[in-house]
């Protein structure tokens, strides 16, 4: 009995506790270093959180070499990502949560 309760508890926790970013992104982007590197490239190119989020949104909606923040070598090796199926609102939420979590501003003290 206790086993079932524990399984149900973890199931509910995962369903409710995880946010859009974790739900939609971390399945593929497993490594923390990888996420940091993406943020590093975007920060270097776009500076502010507002512009970074817009650039990420544009890229994920219609990925291309032109609107990618990654360098040419990376794109040649791994290619262009597939277009997202997420709805605009959910995609924006995911990107925002990612930015909140990995923002470089938080690293300065």
């Amino acid at each position: 009995m206790h086993k079932y309760i524990l399984v149900i508890f973890f199931f509910v926790y995962t369903l409710l506790g995880s946010n859009e970013f974790e739900k939609n992104c971390t399945l593929c982007h497993l490594q923390d270093t990888q996420l940091k590197m993406i943020m590093s490239k975007y920060t270097l190119k776009f500076s502010s959180q507002r512009i970074i989020e817009n650039a990420m949104f544009d890229y994920l909606k219609s990925p291309s070499r032109e609107n990618s923040a990654m360098h040419l070598g990376f794109l040649n090796k791994f290619g262009i990502k597939e277009k997202t199926n997420l709805k605009d609102e959910e995609l924006r939420k995911s990107i925002h949560q990612y930015n909140k979590k990995y923002s470089f501003t938080e690293l300065i003290e």
């Binding site: 502010s48 512009i51 003290e109």
Partner: peptide, 23 residues
């Protein structure tokens, strides 16, 4: 973490492209 540099000779600040204060 980055410990923002502080100097006696001057004060400083960094801003993003939208002029939001970073530090």
């Amino acid at each position: 973490k980055l410990i923002y540099p502080r100097y006696e000779e001057f004060n400083s600040a960094i801003y993003d492209i939208d002029k939001n204060e970073l530090y």
